[in-house]
């Protein structure tokens, strides 16, 4: 029963992560690129680049989410995969920057253009992720030290 419950939980969270990291951004960017007349200066190569990295890291994040959320509570493997997931999340967030999605150039006719740089916002996210990494490392240490106690409580 425990295994089925864990896997169900894993699949639910994989679905949620897939929706939030792959489907919604993909739909958003597809809509933006498809709307004619928007004052955005994005080329086909930028579009392909953004889509590719979103899907690539989104898949990794979703796969890791399955492993993390299907693992038993307070288990070492959950803590380890949570740490890996945070690191991959950093890459996912960073992919917005290096694919060019964080710099949006608006072209206004008869006026010129201006660029909206969202990198600073991503940097704040990176700071939050760094704090999360520290928490995850603490979790690994805690779960490793109290392994026997946690296991006894879980198997009661």
């Amino acid at each position: 029963m425990g295994a089925v419950k864990n896997m169900l939980k894993g699949f639910i969270f994989t679905g949620i992560y897939a929706v939030f990291t792959v489907v919604i951004p993909l739909v958003f960017f597809t809509l933006i690129f498809s709307i004619e007349g928007l004052p955005l200066e994005w080329e086909q190569q930028d579009q392909n680049n953004i889509m590719f990295w979103l899907v690539a890291f989104g898949l990794l994040v979703s796969g890791l989410a399955f492993f993390k959320y299907s693992s038993p509570k307070q288990s070492i493997r959950k803590a380890v995969f949570a740490l890996i997931q945070v690191i991959v999340n950093c890459l996912y967030i960073w992919s917005y920057r290096f694919s060019g999605a964080a710099e949006v150039t608006f072209v206004i006719l008869d006026f010129g253009f201006f660029t909206l740089d969202l990198s600073q916002m991503l940097l704040i996210y990176m700071g939050v992720y760094f704090l999360t990494i520290i928490l995850r490392v603490y979790d690994i240490i805690d779960f490793t030290i109290n392994r026997e106690k946690i296991r006894e409580n879980r198997m009661k």
């Binding site: 029963m1 425990g2 864990n6 896997m7 894993g10 299907s70 693992s71 038993p72 879980r154 198997m155």
Partner: peptide, 12 residues
């Protein structure tokens, strides 16, 4: 993840 959960479900 599925295999690991079948082998080590955590509650037993």
């Amino acid at each position: 993840g599925i295999i690991v959960n079948i082998i080590w479900p955590g509650d037993r």
